[in-house]
Computed example of a mutant assay.
Amino acid sequence: MKRNYPPLRLTPQVAGKLQHDFDRISAQFNELKTLHVEFENQIRQALGADSLWSFRKAARNTILARQLASEIRA
């Protein structure tokens, strides 16, 4: 079923603030991605690719276990 949502009407001031916030958050996100890539590269160099893979797997499993536990509690 297709729904038609009315367009969002913003004042110029609110639209400008929204654009400014979006630009700021986008820049922070890009910086975080760059730091993440460099962090992974340094871990890979220091410990090896296998250790990085096992760290990723352990982190993913921990996150999934926390999400499952929170869903069970809810």
Rank of each mutant, 00 (worst) to 15 (best):
M1A: 08
M1I: 10
M1D: 02
K2G: 03
K2N: 04
R3K: 15
R3P: 03
N4Y: 06
Y5F: 07
L8G: 00
R9K: 14
R9C: 04
R9M: 09
R9T: 12
T11G: 05
P12R: 02
P12H: 01
V14D: 08
V14N: 03
A15Q: 14
G16K: 05
K17V: 08
L18K: 11
L18Y: 09
Q19K: 10
H20D: 08
H20K: 13
H20E: 12
D21N: 05
F22W: 06
D23H: 00
R24V: 03
I25Y: 09
I25S: 09
S26L: 12
A27H: 11
A27E: 15
Q28A: 11
F29A: 12
F29Y: 15
N30E: 15
N30R: 15
E31S: 10
L32K: 14
L32T: 13
K33I: 10
T34E: 14
H36E: 13
H36S: 14
H36T: 13
V37R: 06
V37F: 10
E38D: 10
E38H: 04
E38M: 04
F39N: 04
E40N: 04
N41R: 09
Q42K: 11
I43T: 01
I43Y: 02
R44I: 09
R44V: 09
R44A: 13
R44T: 11
R44M: 10
Q45V: 08
A46R: 12
A46T: 09
A46K: 11
A46F: 05
G48H: 04
D50N: 11
D50V: 01
D50C: 01
S51G: 02
L52E: 02
L52D: 01
L52R: 01
W53P: 00
R56E: 13
K57P: 03
A58M: 14
A59P: 01
A59G: 03
R60W: 05
R60C: 03
R60N: 08
R60E: 07
N61T: 09
I63C: 10
L64F: 07
A65T: 03
A65V: 00
R66G: 02
Q67D: 11
Q67A: 07
L68K: 15
A69K: 08
A69S: 12
A69V: 00
E71Q: 12
I72F: 05
A74Q: 13
A74V: 05
